[in-house]
Structures are given as C-alpha cells and as structure tokens.
Design a protein around this nucleic acid. Structure first.
Lengths: 208, 208
DNA sequence: CCTCCATGTGTACAGTTGTTCACTTGATGT
DNA sequence: ACATCAAGTGAACAACTGTACACATGGAGG
C-alpha cells in the first residue's frame, strides 16, 4: 500500500464540485445550495456526498483550492502575453476578462465567497487575492517600472489594483455572458481605473 | 378613505426586516434565509410574512430601500463634518467606518447583495453606489479641488473611490466588530488607497 | 485466487420548508 | 353605532431536507 492513491480521477468528487459550480453559474448563491440539490445536479445519490465532503462548507473549501489553480493559470497567461510595457494594463485587463469568460462559474463563486457565509471560504479567497497581489508586486519590481516606490508602497498599489479588478467582477456577473458591448465597456473602464492608479503611483511620495 | 395610511408604524413589517438583518448580522447569508426562519426570529407566525412581502426577494428589495436611507445619512454626516480639505479623505473614511460599526448588519447585507442571488437586489445596491458616486462628484466639484478634471474623468475617479471603499467592507466584516486594532489598520489602509487615487487624479491628463 | 475496503446504492425517518385556507380582531371612516 | 377590511392567528399539507444504516461492487495487494 506504499502508494495510497487508489482513486482514478475521482469521478464523483469532481462531478459534485462541478455540479455546485454549475448551479452557481445558473444564478444560485452558493450559500443557498443544499446537499441533495448538488447531488441531484451531479446525477448521484445523496449519500455519495459524504464519501467526499463533510458538508457544503467543506466542498466550498475545496473549490477555493481549485480557484487558486485558475488564478495561477491566469497569471501565467498574463506573464507570457503582456509584452509591451505601454499596453501592460490594457492587455492584463483583457486577459483577465477572457479568463472570467472561460471560467465564469469559478469567478462568480469567488465574488460570492468574499462576503459568503463560511468564514473559512472567505478567508481562503482573501488569501488567494493577497497572494495574487504579492506576485503582481514581484513582477512589477522585476520589470523595473516602479523603481521610486519602496516595498510597502508597491504592495499598497498592487493591493489596490487587485481590489479594483476584483470589484469589476461584480460588474461582469451583472451583465449576460454574451453581451459583448457591455463587457467591452467594463473592460475599458477597468483599464482606466488601473491607469489612474498607476498615475498616482508614479507621482507618489512616500511620506504622504 | 382619502388617507389610505391606516397602519401605525407597521410593527410586524419592521420586525421582519429587522429579524432578517439580525440573522445576517449573526453571520448567515441573506440568500440562505427562509421565510419560516425569519418569522421565527421576529417572534411572529409564518403566515404573517405574506401580509407584507411576496417572498424573500421582496423583503430584500425593501431592505435595499432602507439601505439607501442609511447611506444618505452617512453622506449628510460627512458633508457636515469634513471641514478641512487636507484631512478630507482621512475624515471621510473615519466617518464611513463609524457608520459601518453603527449599522453593521446593513452593510454586511450590502456586501452580500453585490454578488447575491437576486438580480433585483443586486441592481438596487449597484444603483445606490452609482448615486453615491455621483453625489461625491458633485461635492468635489463644489469644493473646486479638482478643477482640471472634466466631468467624465471626475466621474471615473469618484466611481473608483466608491468601489475602493465598498471593497473595504469585505475587510471590515472579516474582523470581529470590537477588534479596534484591526479596524484601525483597515481605516489607515483605505485612507492611503484614496490618497493614491487622488494623487493619480491630480496628475491625470484627459487624453490618456 | 481470495480478501479488503474505498466508493457507490437504496431505503428510511424525523424535522423543516413554503404556501393555503378559514378564522379572529380591532381600529377606521361614515 | 356599525360595517369594513388590513393585519394577525392556527392548523394543515405535500414536498423537501440532512443524515444514518445496511448493503452491493469491483479493483488492488497479498
């Protein structure tokens, strides 16, 4: 039994997580989902749920872990494709929006979870955002675009950027997924928010 | 029947709305509340609910209306007490945080509703925030602190300010209501976000 | 080949849910 | 003084909920 991983790609477990995400994507709030509802959506008998999760909060926590992977993929995508410094923000926002469209349910879950019912899920998402902001700070340091900022002020700026982009989620989920015009409006507006922030960062003097 | 207002201060209706807020304040998510649960908390028989609301979404909408009043009170408070221009942001954030502490449940409800289950509630809250941002723009115009910005750019700035402050709600609700140290940290950080934004606004050139 | 055990199934039960209906009550406008 | 009607009550219902238990199964390790 040296290798304790009997499971093939844990079909049912994945089906249950996908089912929860599907329901969230259909407009339901995660906090209002029940075990029976999720198992029904997954095409599985209710008792199976307990083979993989203790309760809905537990499932939520494991969704947060997968959300982390989604965010990391997005970061890698951005690092690989944001080439010209002068279009940095426009391109980053475009990549963000593309990933939101490709993983809508995940990001809706994230937006819900920030003010959700489970403390643990809340904290998990907040910690993902903190990590994202710190990675962003590293990248900016490496690109040497913000040399006049000390570490604390750079962190402040990156936090604000991440928050601003995260708040745009609430805009994105309030328009239908195929309303290209509105989505483009949100993209432009978010880009300008970031530009405003970076103009601020460029003229920021550490002592207030 | 020229005056159709028989109701004395609609006791039960208010009790129901307060009960929902109380449950939200205790950590429950609005989307997971049921009619029976709310009536139980209000000390009222379940059928009474239907005398005042069609369903939980309806109650949510009426809560949004009251939330509007809370926000307007806060605005009035800010206008009356923010005296010195150079402390404008620090004082405004302080007033915001004080009102959040005095109406915790309302603001938790607002944070939840932004990514909530009911489209109508979502839109209601978003519209309150838009209104708030436009009032803020008016005030800033009157104070003539941002004369170099055209209307569109001033709106952009105020939107960003409101979003930033709104996002701080998720920080505030994640710390216990009497953890003065953490709350003060959030206050300072939010203030610096706003300062960063206004430094950006001060150096903003309309054509990008 | 046999045994084990993680995974999945079917049945069952008590508690809760939303909503209905017929009933009481008490303040109101005339 | 009286009729009216919004507001509140209590009992009832079928549908659904979370969870427990005993059982089936099939692939892995010996």
């Amino acid at each position: 039994m040296t290798e304790r991983k009997r499971r093939k790609p844990g079909e049912t477990r994945d089906k249950l997580m996908e089912a929860a995400l599907t329901l969230v994507g259909k407009g339901r709030h995660f906090a209002s989902l029940g075990i029976r509802e999720v198992t029904r959506q997954a095409g599985v008998v209710p008792t199976s749920f307990y083979r993989h999760f203790r309760n809905m909060d537990d499932l939520g926590l494991q969704l947060v872990d997968e959300l982390g992977l989604v965010l990391r993929r997005m970061m890698r995508d951005a690092r690989a494709n944001v080439l010209q410094a002068e279009k940095l923000m426009a391109e980053s926002v475009a990549i963000f929006i593309r990933h939101v469209q490709d993983n809508r349910s995940f990001f809706v879950f994230m937006a819900q979870g920030l003010a959700g019912e489970s403390r643990a899920v809340q904290e998990g998402i907040r910690s993902e955002l903190r990590f994202f902001a710190s990675e962003l700070a590293n990248d900016l340091r490496r690109l040497r675009l913000v040399d006049h900022l000390n570490d604390a002020d750079l962190d402040l700026t990156c936090d604000l950027v991440v928050r601003t982009v995260a708040f745009s989620l609430t805009d994105l989920i309030s328009v239908s997924a195929d309303d290209d015009y509105q989505i483009d409006q949100i993209r432009q507006r978010t880009t300008r928010y970031l530009q405003l922030i970076f103009v601020g960062a460029a003229h920021w003097q550490t002592g207030d």
